[in-house]
Design a binder for these strands. Structure first.
Lengths: 334, 334
DNA sequence: CTTCGCGTTGACCACGTATGCAACCGCAGC
DNA sequence: GCTGCGGTTGCATACGTGGTCAACGCGAAG
């Protein structure tokens, strides 16, 4: 029962070479003659040697670990992103250390990440306090906010153009002739929700329209349900709703059709945001704004790894274009 | 620019104590006098000291890392599991190292996990070759298969009672008076799909019925669509379908309603498996078999950590009860 | 006053690997 | 034949921490 402990020394002894030779054989760019390399590899193969990544990280100062912080996976945009991010980092030789925010203990989580000497941090659907950002900057650990911005922090961010996406939705609904256009927000303090709403209002204004009513959905199904009740429980109902993300839009559609007996889009148009896979499913067929998930992931990885390679944190922001996807849940202009 | 390098030695120098004292202060159970502990903590606070988890792992032989291997996150059962597993392990002081299977390079992935000295491995929706299983056993790394079994391997597994779940579905559909009951399988080589199908056939047989037709769905939406075409493209159509998981069932329902113009459950009953959140959404309202995700996660964590604590791998299997959830997508008996 | 014992502390080594440095070898140029 | 040089190799050290062991101080018991 060798408790997993075959070391470079063991390989060296079997191959009758020095431990340095083994190390050089497994480090790219090491100066090793072909015959020695062959002997070392043969011995390593025989013993089932595997370099200890932790020891390597200690001496080289490069752990190869990237921390990934996620708040929740209910919104299916994030599992998609998680999968793509993980694959991309894996292909570039990095490992993903996954953290789920435990509300309130967010600072603890970041401490744990730094204890593990992660080389970079990606925060998706999670906020970073300014004190934590400073702490990361002090240790030289680059941070990239995914799908979120926090002005004034020494961290980078990758987002899609939420304002422009919202604006296009506003123009679409106004030009389709809707008269009472409502908005269901996400979390009020999130930059995505604010930007989408601001763009939405601008798009409406450009067409001489304005927001008829608004309610807070908080990015949850329950919140969306309450928002729908608030907007549709009164005497005069909206004839169109822009919901801050698809996840809430599905809840809203279920409720509008099931409980309020409304037809979509005949009685009310519904537009979402994200273009998660379910938006394309026949049961919802949701008109929405597509976030360029793949491009956002690619930008995140590029931005993060560039800082890792250069060894210094910088503060950049990538803003990727979003795209309106017309489906059947909203009336079309003309 | 102190490149993140404040060590226990730095703290010791500032507090005018030995490095051992700092180590003892941060190791639970260390013999330290109150005043020394206070001085050390003050110095650590002042310098922003954070113990290096990698160095600690090297000397203690306990990395605190658990590898989590996932194949895909399209099926929303897995994001849920991922979130719960991650939270549970996090709360017990372990960190999750996430890996996505890159088809074909699965052995490489396991090698990487072992290089990082993970203390345990959870494989969800991913298979383990027998050679890899032996390699893990050799290093003393416990492995738990989640929602999958592979007989004959020296690894543990946690599943729900797929056979019993399938049996209940069989009885339900037979007793509801359906005459042409079809089945859409998942991946043919997966234990979940095989068990569900076997139980399903048994449940039907108990009521004097039998499977009318079957097709392979492969656990993907595309595969499910092809299966639906295969089953419903002919002259005589099934009047009930048991789909091996919810993810495919949604695709089937979309197609049956949209393309075949069938009403659910009046023209055809549809039953799924997993009880993912969308199954409860009004647009689908899917009768399905609930897998006890929370309990499965709890069992996985308990089983894995028990082996980690005891320091030896064992081969156990947990089989948790599943529960039929009656909703509106299938006719009821009587 | 001596001795014993307990609680605390520090010097030292180990974990497994990467790397600077010196030593070594062989070969070409003079 | 001697010198110099490029390519290899081994020795020793460092990374940051946990644990072992001996030393130390101090109070209590004899």
């Amino acid at each position: 029962m060798p408790k997993g402990g075959v070391t470079s020394g063991d390989v060296a002894r079997l191959a009758r070479v020095s431990q340095s030779a083994v190390s050089r054989t497994f480090s790219p760019g090491g100066s090793v003659s072909p015959e020695m390399r062959a002997r070392v590899l043969a011995a390593a193969q025989q013993l089932g040697y595997r370099p200890n990544a932790l020891a390597r990280a200690m001496i080289s100062g490069r752990s190869g670990l990237i921390a990934l912080l996620v708040a929740y996976l209910d919104n299916h945009f994030y599992p998609q992103v998680l999968e793509m991010l993980s694959r991309a980092l894996q292909n570039r030789g990095f490992q993903v250390l996954l953290f789920m925010t435990d509300r309130g203990r967010q600072d603890m989580v970041v401490q744990r990440m730094l204890q593990y000497q992660v080389e970079g941090i990606v925060m998706a659907s999670a906020t970073l306090s300014s004190s934590l950002a400073r702490e990361c900057a002090k240790t030289g650990t680059p941070v990239v906010l995914f799908n979120r911005t926090v002005p004034g922090l020494p961290v980078s961010s990758v987002t899609s153009d939420n304002a422009e996406g919202g604006r296009q939705v506003g123009r679409l609904l106004a030009q389709a002739g809707h008269k009472r256009i409502a908005f269901i927000s996400g979390q009020e303090d999130s930059s995505t929700s604010r930007d989408r709403e601001a763009g939405f209002a601008r798009g409406l204004a450009e067409c001489g329209a304005a927001v008829f009513a608004r309610a807070v959905g908080g990015y949850t199904r329950e919140g969306a349900a309450q928002a729908v009740h608030a907007l549709f429980g009164g005497a005069v109902r909206p004839d169109a709703v822009f919901v801050a993300n698809d996840h809430m839009a599905f809840a809203a559609m279920d409720l509008l059709r099931g409980q309020y007996g409304l037809r979509i889009p005949e009685d009310v148009s519904v537009v979402g945001y994200d273009d998660v896979p379910e938006a394309g499913w026949a049961a919802y067929d949701l008109t929405t704004v597509a976030q360029p998930g793949a491009e956002m992931v690619e930008a995140t990885v590029a931005m993060l790894l560039e800082q890792v390679e250069r060894g210094e944190v910088s503060r950049r922001a990538a803003l990727l274009p979003s795209r309106l996807v017309l489906r059947g849940s909203a009336r079309l202009p003309g």
